[in-house]
Amino acid sequence: MKKAEIFMASFWAALSAAIILEVHYIPYTKQPIGWEKGLGPQAGWFPFWLAVIMLICSLIVLIPKVIRAIKDGLAEEKAFISVEGFQAIMRALIPMIVYVVTLPWLGFYLGSTLYLIYYIRAVGKHSWTLSLLTGSIFSVSVFLIFEKALKLTLAKGFIEPILNQFL
């Protein structure tokens, strides 16, 4: 857990530092961070000082952990994640990322069908029938409800011309 704790605390520290830079130092995104006399705080005042407090807090969490790690070494008494747990997460997360990245091309309908078929078949180890059925029924019902009944357009990707035939 030590590494994970250090990683998270450094993440917050880095994030707050980035925000401080963004608000006050980078010319393109810079905001006035002052307190105008008679008018109150300017646009950057709130985010700037919040980020400063966040940086201080994350350092309060981070520094003792780093000192202890230097003293005792980074050997973990309790692993952050088991090997099986990590594998299980990756099996779910990587397709999830692929699904999101390919969304502009595949669209929700095709993408969801493929994702469902993959997950139910390959991760869930269910039968082909179940995976194919779930995948197609889900997409068709979402299509009917969203596009047909409610006239809400979800991203359809390259099969858009085909799907538009059914509208």
Partner: peptide
């Protein structure tokens, strides 16, 4: 394992 991908979508 069927519910998970549905929740994600």
């Amino acid at each position: 394992t069927v519910l998970t991908p549905l929740i994600v979508i």
